[in-house]
Nucleic acid binder design. Sequence first.
DNA 1: GGGCTTGCTTGATACGCGTCAAAGCAAGAA
DNA 2: TTCTTGCTTTGACGCGTATCAAGCAAGCCC
Lengths: 239, 239
Amino acid sequence: MHALKVSCSNCSLRELCLPVGLNRDEMAQLDAVIRQSRRLKRGEYLFRSGEGFRSLYAVRTGYFKTCVSSQDGREQVTGFHMSGELMGLDGISSNLHGCDAIALEDSEVCELPFNRMETLGRDIPSLQHHFFRLMSREIVRDQSVMLLLGNMKAEERLAAFLLNLSQRLSARGFAANDFILRMSREEIGSFLGLKLETVSRTLSKFQQQGWLVVDHKHIQLVKPEALKELVAGCSQAQH
Amino acid sequence: MHALKVSCSNCSLRELCLPVGLNRDEMAQLDAVIRQSRRLKRGEYLFRSGEGFRSLYAVRTGYFKTCVSSQDGREQVTGFHMSGELMGLDGISSNLHGCDAIALEDSEVCELPFNRMETLGRDIPSLQHHFFRLMSREIVRDQSVMLLLGNMKAEERLAAFLLNLSQRLSARGFAANDFILRMSREEIGSFLGLKLETVSRTLSKFQQQGWLVVDHKHIQLVKPEALKELVAGCSQAQH
DNA sequence: GGGCTTGCTTGATACGCGTCAAAGCAAGAA
DNA sequence: TTCTTGCTTTGACGCGTATCAAGCAAGCCC
């Protein structure tokens, strides 16, 4: 990943979500398209399922969850999103957002009007290609969630979740083994296909085994290797 | 959907997977890019996880499953694919295929070299847009599978599966309530996050209730309304 | 035909996780 | 402070699905 460290008035983290090799002129065109960033308070909706789709959103700071709901009110969290990650790709197909996006803490996003990004993609091939790659990456991510929901046991799911979080945080320069959960036990459970009590119990079990320390939302991974060993077998095979 | 019924030497079902409003000239350009179709025998791999990614594949005739495997050999079927449906979108992100695609019966696909489709998309905006829509639709589909795997009980999963099959078959001009399953009980179970015995038992239960008739792979939906009622509450909310 | 394989059904049993309930704990309001 | 309120932890119990195992039907090869 050749992340460009070009100063950018609109979105300081653009190099994370759009790491394309653009020249100065193309960069300026992109800048012209990216809208002012938007701030959201904790709990606020960025968009709701069924609303008209106009833009993608990249997280600048803060934390989001996306979720779909069934008619009788069951909620499935489909993902947690941190800085540099894109939300709203599911809205392209029908011009309606297909999920809710909710800020888990005070957050900031930059808005990418999709029509204009699409047009720009025609002039800047590497940008077009990058968008295809981003969408494909989302499909790959979803497939690994299916593997998790379809095949893993509670302990394996939670271990995979914690390691995934750890890896994404450290990729952003945060500590890999000492972090704050931004979501509730219930939201973790919804994402992992478990009930909140099971999440809580499983965390306690990991703590008893000395693999981590739980203090409310504060998690310290003491033996990340143990967690890795637990998920080694059931994680997706590398070829 | 404005499905064009233009004759096409390479891919008679192109109107299904590429229903774009193209003029004669654009159509010719597209024809030039789409490769000769490829035939596969039942059980044959179209591609394997980890192989280099070059092309997307659209099913012309027959039936496919795609699946990801964990290191210890657990297999998660991520989808079943029938005529007009596209496979391989997950390969774009890393230039490697992210899943296996296997023919469930003797089948035929047409190959869409991705680089050339990408280039063509720049000249034909509606084609580019259509590709974005296709990828987005795949993300939406994956989200609804997550809802299924995360929240539904065995009966609800199987009912949702049968109704989805029924709907896709009838969209292709086949009978909605009388069809042959192309996959084994084990493959259905793998897709739905259930064991084959549970699939078998649940089918038997549906039959005892007079909702359908099972004769090996031959399914007749007698009371599809009953199945619909079962999934009504737990299916994704419409807005 | 006999004997094999493969896939499906069905039953008995086990166990993991959901459900229900109670209590602890932190943060904020009155 | 004291009373909320929301979130979490923990325990007891029960249900739903997995697991193990046996039997059956269909297809295939010799």
